[in-house]
Computed example of a mutant assay.
Amino acid sequence: MATEVTYNRIAMLRAERGISRRQLADALGVHYQTVGYLERGEFSPSLHLAMRICQYFEVPVEVVFALEPFPRLGATSQSA
Protein backbone atom coordinates (compact mmCIF):
# COMPACT_ATOMS: atom_id res chain seq x y z
CA MET A 1 0.00 0.00 0.00
CA ALA A 2 1.33 3.44 -0.92
CA THR A 3 2.11 5.95 1.78
CA GLU A 4 -0.49 8.68 2.07
CA VAL A 5 1.02 12.09 1.41
CA THR A 6 -0.45 15.45 2.28
CA TYR A 7 1.18 18.42 0.58
CA ASN A 8 1.29 21.79 2.28
CA ARG A 9 2.33 25.40 1.84
CA ILE A 10 3.21 26.06 5.47
CA ALA A 11 6.79 27.13 4.71
CA MET A 12 5.64 29.51 1.97
CA LEU A 13 2.95 31.10 4.15
CA ARG A 14 5.35 31.39 7.05
CA ALA A 15 8.04 33.01 4.85
CA GLU A 16 5.54 35.45 3.29
CA ARG A 17 4.63 36.67 6.76
CA GLY A 18 8.17 36.71 8.16
CA ILE A 19 7.31 34.20 10.89
CA SER A 20 9.96 31.85 12.28
CA ARG A 21 9.31 28.16 12.87
CA ARG A 22 9.53 28.81 16.59
CA GLN A 23 6.97 31.65 16.42
CA LEU A 24 4.52 29.46 14.52
CA ALA A 25 5.11 26.54 16.87
CA ASP A 26 4.51 28.75 19.91
CA ALA A 27 1.27 30.05 18.40
CA LEU A 28 0.10 26.50 17.68
CA GLY A 29 1.29 24.99 20.95
CA VAL A 30 3.65 22.48 19.30
CA HIS A 31 7.42 21.94 19.34
CA TYR A 32 9.27 24.00 16.73
CA GLN A 33 10.71 20.78 15.22
CA THR A 34 7.14 19.68 14.51
CA VAL A 35 6.77 22.68 12.19
CA GLY A 36 9.91 21.55 10.33
CA TYR A 37 8.57 18.00 10.03
CA LEU A 38 5.29 19.34 8.67
CA GLU A 39 7.01 21.61 6.15
CA ARG A 40 9.20 18.79 4.85
CA GLY A 41 6.26 16.41 4.59
CA GLU A 42 7.77 14.05 7.18
CA PHE A 43 4.69 14.35 9.37
CA SER A 44 1.02 14.84 8.55
CA PRO A 45 -0.92 16.95 11.01
CA SER A 46 -4.02 15.80 12.80
CA LEU A 47 -7.20 17.35 11.48
CA HIS A 48 -7.33 19.56 14.56
CA LEU A 49 -3.76 20.83 14.05
CA ALA A 50 -4.39 21.36 10.32
CA MET A 51 -7.45 23.47 11.11
CA ARG A 52 -5.49 25.49 13.69
CA ILE A 53 -2.76 26.15 11.11
CA CYS A 54 -5.36 27.43 8.63
CA GLN A 55 -6.98 29.54 11.33
CA TYR A 56 -3.60 31.01 12.28
CA PHE A 57 -2.89 32.04 8.68
CA GLU A 58 -6.54 33.07 8.17
CA VAL A 59 -6.89 31.10 4.94
CA PRO A 60 -9.10 28.23 3.76
CA VAL A 61 -7.76 24.70 4.19
CA GLU A 62 -7.24 24.23 0.43
CA VAL A 63 -4.76 27.14 0.44
CA VAL A 64 -2.54 25.28 2.91
CA PHE A 65 -3.13 21.57 2.25
CA ALA A 66 -3.67 19.37 -0.80
CA LEU A 67 -3.59 15.71 -1.79
CA GLU A 68 -1.75 16.53 -5.03
CA PRO A 69 1.43 18.62 -5.33
CA PHE A 70 0.80 22.34 -5.65
CA PRO A 71 1.68 23.95 -9.01
CA ARG A 72 5.13 25.47 -9.03
CA LEU A 73 5.29 29.17 -8.30
CA GLY A 74 5.85 31.09 -11.48
CA ALA A 75 3.95 28.53 -13.54
CA THR A 76 1.64 30.58 -15.69
CA SER A 77 -1.32 29.57 -17.74
CA GLN A 78 -1.68 30.73 -21.29
CA SER A 79 -4.43 33.29 -21.79
CA ALA A 80 -6.40 33.56 -25.02
Rank of each mutant, 00 (worst) to 15 (best):
Pro71Ile: 09
Leu24Gln: 02
Ile19His: 04
Leu67Gln: 13
Glu39Ile: 02
Val5Met: 10
Ser79Glu: 14
His48Asp: 13
Leu73Arg: 08
Leu38Glu: 00
Asn8Glu: 06
Leu49Ala: 02
Met51Tyr: 12
Ile53Gln: 00
Ala75Asn: 12
Ala27Lys: 10
Leu67Ala: 13
Val63Ala: 07
Glu58Gly: 11
Pro69Arg: 15
Gly29Ser: 05
Ala25Arg: 02
Leu67Cys: 07
Leu67Tyr: 10
Leu49Gly: 02
Ser44Tyr: 01
Thr3Trp: 10
Leu28His: 09
Tyr32Asn: 05
Gln78Arg: 15
Ala75Tyr: 12
Thr34Cys: 06
Gly29Cys: 03
Pro69Lys: 13
Gly29Ala: 05
Val64Ser: 00
Ser20Pro: 04
Gly74Met: 13
Leu38Phe: 00
Gly74Thr: 14
Thr76Ser: 14
Glu42Val: 09
Tyr56Leu: 11
Gln78Leu: 15
Thr34His: 09
Gly36Pro: 01
Phe65Gln: 01
Arg52Trp: 08
Tyr37Gln: 14
Phe43Trp: 08
Met1Tyr: 11
Ala27Gly: 08
Cys54Leu: 07
Val35Phe: 07
Leu13Cys: 07
Ser20Ala: 03
Pro45Asp: 02
Phe65Glu: 00
Leu24Trp: 01
Arg22Ser: 09
Gly18Cys: 09
Phe65Val: 02
Arg52Leu: 13
Tyr32Ser: 08
Thr6His: 00
Glu62Met: 06
Arg52Ala: 11
Thr34Ala: 06
Val64Met: 02
Val30Gly: 03
Asp26Gly: 04
Glu39Thr: 02
Arg22Met: 06
Phe57Arg: 03
Leu49Glu: 00
Arg14Ser: 04
Met12Arg: 10
Ala2Ile: 08
Val61Ser: 08
Met51Cys: 13
Arg17Gln: 14
Ile19Leu: 11
Met1Thr: 12
Ile19Lys: 06
Leu49Arg: 03
Phe65Ala: 02
Glu62Ser: 07
Gly36Leu: 07
His31Leu: 09
Glu4Met: 11
His31Tyr: 08
Val64Cys: 03
Gln55Asp: 12
Ala27Gln: 09
Leu73Pro: 00
Glu16Cys: 13
Val61Glu: 06
Tyr32Cys: 04
Glu42Asn: 13
Arg17Ser: 11
Asn8Lys: 08
Arg9His: 06
Ala50Met: 09
Ala66Asn: 14
Arg22Val: 05
Ala15Gly: 04
Val59Asp: 12
Arg14Cys: 01
His48Asn: 09
Glu62Ala: 03
Val63Tyr: 05
Arg17Thr: 10
Ala27Ser: 13
Leu24Asp: 00
Glu4Ser: 08
Asp26Cys: 06
Gly18Pro: 04
Tyr56Phe: 15
His31Asn: 14
Val30Tyr: 01
Leu47Trp: 10
Leu28Cys: 06
Val5His: 12
Val64Arg: 00
Arg9Ala: 03
Gln78Ile: 15
Arg17Ala: 12
Pro60Gly: 04
His48Gln: 14
Ala25Met: 03
Pro71Trp: 06
Tyr37Ser: 10
Tyr37Met: 14
Ala27Pro: 05
Glu4Cys: 06
Tyr56Trp: 13
Thr6Ile: 07
Gly41Pro: 05
Ser77Gln: 15
